[in-house]
């Protein structure tokens, strides 16, 4: 099975604090990988490093996406090449129309891929249909981006963006935080529909709850800036029983 992402000896800091301390991680194409770890382990820093967030400074190591080191790539280049991060706390942008923003993003990606841009009617038909599947109220599509959305609505809107942008690598950072059971189910169904045997997922979470809905192929335990254990889905049960304190770097 080919690897979509290979992270080698990644060291990264936020401000003056080193968070990732030589992290190694391989993600297989078409698989669902989950990263679990205690607070402060570096889970969100890892996701930010992959998408090129300005907070994170990579000081050493490589992030190979489809074999190319993307450490110096701009965030939009990574996105256009198919990397998508569903944010833990999606930002509100008053005045930027949700549908207009998404159409700009979708067409930027289509243009990058050499495809024709979607016209407004085609785009809106598709967006409305997917929003309906996700249980996202239609009026939210014509509102400012995430402004005044509830926690659940923001997460559904993230998944809508993912479905519209059809990325190759999806990073879900605490997608389950702040979701009630109904929202969790709707969001998970949307994500599961996106599984096509080629698209890869990296699910970052504290708790195993989300993994009842999105079944992982691999579990990685991240602790103190490094991956300390990788195993199959059965590792969830062990983590639930023993907690993170049992796991140390090999």
């Amino acid at each position: 099975m080919s690897k979509i992402l290979e992270i080698k000896n990644l060291k990264a800091k936020i401000g003056n604090k080193e968070i990732l301390k030589g992290l190694n991680l391989d993600l297989e194409e078409g698989k669902v990988h989950a990263i679990m770890g205690p607070n402060g382990a570096g889970k969100s820093t890892l996701s930010k490093a992959i998408v090129g967030h300005f907070d994170v400074e990579v000081t050493d190591g490589e992030i190979l996406y489809k074999g190319k080191n993307i450490v110096d790539w701009e965030p939009e280049e990574r996105a256009l090449e198919g990397i998508f991060l569903s944010f833990q706390h999606p930002v509100e942008i008053p005045g930027v129309n949700n549908a207009y923003f998404l159409r700009t993003a979708v067409n930027a990606k289509r243009k990058h891929e050499g495809k024709e841009e979607l016209n407004a009617a085609e785009f809106l038909r598709k967006m409305r249909s997917l929003a309906n599947e996700l249980g996202l109220k239609p009026e939210l599509l014509n509102r400012s981006l995430n402004e005044g959305f509830s926690g659940g609505e923001k997460k559904r809107n993230e998944v809508l963006q993912m479905m519209m942008l059809e990325p190759n690598l999806v990073i879900l950072d605490e997608i389950d935080s702040g979701l009630d059971i109904d929202a969790l189910r709707a969001v998970s169904e949307g994500i599961n529909k996106m599984k096509d045997g080629k698209r890869s997922f990296l699910v970052i979470t504290h708790y195993s709850r989300i993994l009842d809905y999105i079944k992982p192929d691999y579990i990685h335990v991240l602790k103190d800036g490094k991956i300390v254990k990788t195993a199959g889905a059965e590792l969830v049960k062990e983590l639930e029983e023993k907690g993170y304190s049992e796991f140390e770097e090999k």
Partner: peptide
């Protein structure tokens, strides 16, 4: 950053934010 993380280039993203303001 949020706009750029969705594939919108920096120039266009800046314009969108200014227009929103």
């Amino acid at each position: 950053f949020y706009l750029r993380s969705r594939g919108i280039n920096e120039v266009e993203a800046r314009k969108m934010l200014i227009l929103a303001f």
